[in-house]
Amino acid sequence: MIAIHFEERGNCSRLFDELRGYMATYKPYGFGGAVEKNSEATITVRYENKDVDFYESFHPFLASIFAEYVIETKEDEWLMDIAENLFYFTDEEEKQQIVAIAQAILQGDRNDIPSVKPHFDRRAFLYDAFASHLNPDTTFYYEPFLTFRLKEYGEMLIDCIELAIDEYLMEQDYQAMVENLRHYIRITPARLPMVYLVHKDMFTFYDEHFRELTAEEMAYYLKQELVFETGLDFSEMVISPLVSMAPGHVHVFTDEPDHGVILTIQAIFQERLTIFPLQERH
C-alpha cells in the first residue's frame, strides 16, 4: 500500500479520478489494484496482484502516471510563474503567448529554435524521480516532492522560458516591422507600376517589361530606412529593395508559396501581390 498525501485539501481529486480510470482500464488484463480517497488530501493505492512483483508492474505504472500528471497539471502553471516572477511579464496575454511558444519548444514543434538541453527528456526525468521515491508501505508527500526533487526539471523550464521570450520578442519586432512596411506601401505612390519576382533557388527581379533589374538599379531604389533584412549583404536582400520600389503590383513566380520570404512579402503587399506557379513565367 502507498498513501499519497497532499498538503492542500481537494488537490488529490483529479489524480484520484485518473488513477481510478487507469485501474479500471487495465483490470481486465490482470492488473490488480485499488485506489481509495481517504480524505480530501489523501489517496491510498493498493497493489493486489500477488503473482507479479510490485517493482516489475505496479511501480512503473504509478511512476508513469505521476510523470504525466505533473506535465498535465503543473507545467503550464510553473511556466507562467517563471515568466512573471523571474522575467517580469505581468500581462496575461503576453504570458500566454510566451507559454504557448515554450510548450511548442518542449513538444519539439519549433525546429527553428535551438532545443532546450537537447539530451534532457523531461518525461524520463520525471519518471525516474518518481520511481526512486514511490515505495510500498510508505506515505508519499506530493507537494514537498515537487519542491525538493525536481530542481533539474525546473531549471529546464527556466531555460525554455528564456528561449520562448527571445522568440516572442523577435516575433513582436517582426510584426511591427511588417506593419511599418505595409503602412509605407499604403501611403507611397508607386515608383514602378509592376515588379515581377521569380523565385528559383534565389530571387530575381524584373520590371514591368520583364527586363531583369541590375544590381545598380536596385541599389538606386533602396531606401536605408526601409531595410528589413538587417545584417545581410545587399545582394541577398529581397524584401527591402522590393518595398523601396513601392510597386503598384507584384507578381511572384514560385513553386514554394510557403517560403518564409514570400509569406512576408504577402503580408506586406496583401491585395497588391499575386502568386503564380513558376512554370507560368514563360
Rank of each mutant, 00 (worst) to 15 (best):
His5Asn: 04
Phe6Trp: 01
Phe6His: 03
Asn11Gln: 14
Asn11Lys: 13
Cys12Pro: 06
Cys12Ser: 13
Leu15Asp: 08
Leu15Ser: 14
Phe16Thr: 05
Tyr22Ala: 14
Gly33Arg: 06
Thr44Arg: 13
Val45Ser: 10
Asp51Gly: 04
Asp51Arg: 15
Val52Leu: 09
Asp53Lys: 13
Asp53Tyr: 13
Phe58Gly: 02
Phe61Arg: 08
Ala63Thr: 01
Phe66Asp: 01
Phe66His: 08
Glu68Trp: 12
Glu68Leu: 08
Tyr69Ser: 07
Tyr69Arg: 10
Val70Glu: 03
Val70Ser: 07
Ile71Pro: 01
Glu75Cys: 10
Ile82Arg: 07
Ile82Thr: 09
Ala83Arg: 12
Phe87Trp: 08
Phe89Trp: 12
Phe89Pro: 02
Thr90Phe: 14
Glu92Pro: 03
Glu92Trp: 06
Glu93Tyr: 12
Gln96Tyr: 05
Ile101Ala: 03
Gly108Trp: 15
Gly108Tyr: 14
Arg110Phe: 05
Asp112Lys: 08
Ile113Pro: 03
Ile113Lys: 07
Ile113Leu: 11
Val116Asp: 00
Val116Thr: 14
Lys117Leu: 02
Lys117Ser: 11
Pro118Val: 00
Ala124Arg: 14
Phe125Cys: 06
Tyr127Lys: 07
Ala129Gly: 05
His133Ala: 13
Asn135His: 15
Pro136Ser: 11
Pro136Met: 12
Thr139Glu: 12
Glu143Gly: 12
Phe145Ala: 12
Leu146Tyr: 13
Arg149Val: 02
Leu150Glu: 08
Lys151Asp: 13
Lys151Arg: 15
Lys151Gly: 02
Tyr153Ser: 12
Glu155Val: 07
Asp159Lys: 14
Ile161Cys: 06
Ile161Phe: 09
Leu163His: 12
Leu163Ala: 11
Leu163Glu: 10
Ala164Gly: 08
Ala164His: 04
Ile165Pro: 09
Asp166Leu: 14
Leu169Gln: 11
Leu169Tyr: 11
Met170Ser: 13
Met170Trp: 12
Glu171His: 14
Gln172Ile: 13
Val178Met: 04
Glu179Tyr: 09
Glu179Gln: 14
Arg186Asp: 07
Ile187Gly: 01
Thr188Gly: 00
Pro189Asp: 02
Leu192Asp: 00
Pro193Gln: 10
Tyr196Lys: 05
Tyr196Met: 01
Val198Pro: 10
Asp201Met: 14
Phe203Arg: 10
Phe203Lys: 06
Phe205Lys: 06
Asp207Asn: 15
Glu212Asn: 04
Glu212Thr: 11
Ala215Gly: 11
Lys223Pro: 00
Lys223Gln: 13
Val227Tyr: 06
Asp233Leu: 10
Asp233Pro: 06
Glu236Gly: 04
Ser240Ile: 04
Pro241Asp: 08
Val243Gln: 03
His249Cys: 07
His249Thr: 07
His251Leu: 07
Val252Gln: 04
Val252His: 05
Pro257Trp: 01
Val261Trp: 00
Ile262Lys: 05
Leu263Val: 06
Thr264Phe: 01
Gln266Thr: 11
Ala267Gln: 15
Phe269Asn: 03
Thr274Arg: 14
Phe276Gly: 03
Arg281Gln: 05
His282Arg: 13
His282Tyr: 08
